[in-house]
Every structure is written in structure tokens, then in C-alpha cells.
């Protein structure tokens, strides 16, 4: 008990003074993950820049964010003070989990950050480039094992898209799912799987050290600081971005939406946000309002199509 009291005094002294909440941000994931970090970074930036007096973050983990999304749609409807963080993974999870609530039911505000998918092989591999991989894939798709995140996630979707674009049956992709980034990376480094596919950040240090060779990146054009051809340059017409976004509640008025947009815009252009992005190594892929809504629609359609092709969604 003594410890609790001591702890509360210390932590109380360090915690920010409580005031009326201006924003309540839902992170539909457990504390510590990417969405949670995004929500808490927004909290820091919004408060430090005095855009909002007080921001609260609450976590509703589960089922790729769809549990949080369902709760948000039900409870936040019409409340302009409530926001939800989400990402591309949610698009896939909604489809594979047959979620009754979809992203059509929230008000998209902006895409905040994004990461491109990188395709890597161990340094000792005989695959040198995309063409080499495609040749192997065409010869015997089962002999090429792909290591990445959970089935139906961004990594799996990208693998399916690559196979399809290369003219190989996407259901024949021998995809080996790993539960965490570290586990997948270990399997690639240990030569357990033929190729690895995941967000560039997972591999960056290994690529720099020369233990992994990058054979392609999923961006539209070459990315500054990444010495790798795009998938398109490698002859495979695939581009994909694993983005994170913020959305507002359903049923808010146009003025309310504009106000939230303005606040988010102010936050994104602030010094605090720039510093957070730099510290965390996140790329700023800010895209707001209607442009983002259009992009979201496009992503949802292409994801639905590829998930059907892989056989994850009927």
C-alpha cells in the first residue's frame, strides 16, 4: 500500500493537470501498438501546441480494430469531440472478419502517416531482383515461402498482389504467417523462408548492415533514402501503402467536420508533430478530406478484390 501511495504522489506530480476534455481519441488497439502510439502522439501534439486543452486516449483492443470501430460508430455518433485512429489493416480486417460496421460509417478526416512494404531476401540468397523472384515463382510457386505478418494483413495482401501481377495464381502463394515483426524477421535472417515481406522499417537496419537484400519497395516512385527499385520498376505493377489515419464520428455536420479538419491540419503542420514523426521514424503522408476519402474508397475496393483472389473472403 505504501508503494501505491508513493507512486501516486510521484506520478500525480508528473501528470498533466486535468481539465475539460476537448477531444477523446479512441485507439482501437492495446496500449503500445502502432495505433495506440499514433493516438498518444496526437494527444501530445494537440496539447503541446495548445490546439486542444485536454485530450483523452482510450483503448478498445480487438479483432484488427473492428471491435473499437463498432463501439465508436454506436457511441460517438454525432459527437464532434470524438475521434478514432485506424489504418489500412482495418480495411482488411473488416472484410475478413465480416464486420457489420465498416469505414463507410465514420467521417474520414485525414491520412497521417504511412509506410511502404519492402520485399527482402537473406544476403546469401540466389534471388537478386524482382525478375529472379518472378522466375522462381513461375517455376514452382509452392517452393517460394513468404514470411510476413498475420494472414489477411498488409503483408499477405501485398504478396498476393505481387503474385497476381506476375501472372501466378494468388491462391498458390505459400505464405507463412508470423505473429510479430521480430519473429518474421528472425525466420528470414535464419533462412527459414525464401523471401520476407513487411513494412520497410522492420528491415531498415538489417538492409543497412547488409544482412538482408531489398529487392523492391511498394511505393509509386523512388523513396528518398531507400536504395531500392519500386515493384513497378521491377516489372510488377503493384503499389501499396500501409497508412494510419484519423476519422471523426458519423453524423456530424459539415461545419463540425471542417473544424476538426482545421485542428488536424494545424497539428500536422506543427513543430511538435514534425518532431514526433522524426523521433518515431514515421513518414508524413498527410492527405486530408475528400482526397483521402477517395483514396480510402479505392483501397477498399482493391483490397476486397485481392482478398477474394487469395481465397480469404468468399
Amino acid at each position: 500500500m505504501k508503494q501505491f501511495v508513493l507512486a501516486s504522489i510521484i506520478a500525480g506530480a508528473l501528470a498533466l493537470p486535468a481539465a475539460a476534455a476537448d477531444y477523446k481519441i479512441m485507439a482501437p488497439a492495446a496500449p503500445g501498438g502502432g495505433w495506440d502510439q499514433t493516438a498518444r502522439s496526437m494527444q501530445t501534439a494537440l496539447q503541446d501546441e495548445k490546439i486542444s486543452g485536454s485530450v483523452q486516449v482510450n483503448n478498445v483492443p480487438g479483432a484488427g480494430g473492428t471491435i473499437g470501430l463498432a463501439q465508436f460508430v454506436n457511441q460517438a455518433s454525432g459527437d464532434p469531440a470524438q475521434l478514432i485512429v485506424g489504418g489500412y489493416v482495418m480495411v482488411g480486417a473488416i472484410l475478413t472478419n465480416a464486420s457489420p460496421v465498416t469505414l463507410d460509417q465514420v467521417t474520414p478526416i485525414a491520412r497521417l502517416t504511412g509506410e511502404y512494404e519492402a520485399l527482402v531476401v537473406p544476403a546469401a540468397s540466389d534471388i537478386k531482383d524482382m525478375a529472379g523472384l518472378v522466375a522462381k515463382l513461375k517455376a514452382d510457386p509452392g517452393a517460394v515461402s513468404w514470411g510476413g505478418g498475420s494472414a489477411g494483413g498488409t503483408d499477405h495482401i501485398t504478396a498476393g498482389l505481387i503474385a497476381k501481377a506476375a501472372g501466378v495464381d494468388p491462391t498458390k502463394v505459400n505464405y507463412i504467417a508470423y505473429s510479430g515483426g521480430g519473429e518474421a524477421l528472425a525466420a528470414i535472417l535464419g533462412g527459414q523462408v525464401t523471401v520476407g515481406i513487411s513494412g520497410y522499417g522492420e528491415f531498415a537496419e538489417q538492409i543497412k548492415a547488409g544482412t538482408l537484400r531489398i529487392i523492391g519497395i511498394s511505393s509509386d516512385a523512388k523513396v528518398e533514402g531507400i536504395d531500392a527499385p519500386t515493384f513497378k520498376e521491377g516489372g510488377v505493377d503493384v503499389s501499396i501503402q500501409n497508412w494510419r489515419m484519423v476519422a471523426a464520428a458519423p453524423g456530424i455536420s459539415a461545419e463540425q467536420k471542417a473544424a476538426v479538419l482545421a485542428d488536424v491540419e494545424k497539428m500536422v503542420t506543427s513543430a511538435s508533430w514534425t518532431k514526433i514523426l522524426a523521433d518515431k521514424g514515421w513518414a508524413n503522408t498527410y492527405l486530408a478530406g475528400d482526397d483521402f476519402a477517395a483514396q480510402l474508397k479505392k483501397d477498399t475496393e482493391s483490397t476486397a478484390a485481392i482478398l477474394k483472389d487469395i481465397g480469404l473472403v468468399k
Binding site: A63, T96, N97, S150, A151, G152, H156, I176, A177, Y178, S179, L312
Partner: peptide, 8 residues
């Protein structure tokens, strides 16, 4: 959800 196939 089964990790390998995404099936519930």
C-alpha cells in the same frame, strides 16, 4: 482467428 489462414 487462425494466424495461418485468417479463419475464425
Amino acid at each position: 482467428i487462425d494466424l495461418q489462414t485468417g479463419q475464425a
